[in-house]
Amino acid sequence: MAFWNRRSAKQTEEQAWLTVLAPVSGDVVRLNDVPDPVFAQRMVGDGAAVNPTSDTLVAPVDGTLTNLFPTGHAAGITTDQGMEVLIHIGMDTVELKGQGFEKLTEQGQRVTTGTALIRMDLETLRTTAKSVVTPVVVTNMAQIEELVITDQPHVEAGKDWLFKVKIKRG
């Protein structure tokens, strides 16, 4: 009995954490260092950012692509547990009206970790965008009990985890 109890406790513990992978490859940037107060002050959510070196943005978690903004500069996934993960490519990039972004899927689709979502023309964006730093945040912050950010300076898209959040029990 003790064996089974331990096992189920371990499973519960695993389910309570959401692991968010890097959606792009690049150097890890703390939200505090993101050049937009909306993200730096965690108004949108808590997480971490990546300064991208790869041009394909992939899903960092499994879930439903609740939001693929028409301009292609932001994507949001809702996990089966109801956690919302928003990826925002660059700063003030909504103003580029889609230039430099190519949507590779559609809003409402089921996605799994690694599904390609958006292709970015990084060369263009580096000249047209205020910044290409890409925050990845959990927007339902009230449900976060703990957040752990990777201590690796560099992450690979779809392979390395960027941060993990412990989800509060309802």
Partner: peptide, 12 residues
């Protein structure tokens, strides 16, 4: 109360 919800409306 959901940021993704609001953004998914794609309000222009």
């Amino acid at each position: 109360k959901s940021i993704l919800g609001i953004m998914s409306l794609a309000v222009a």
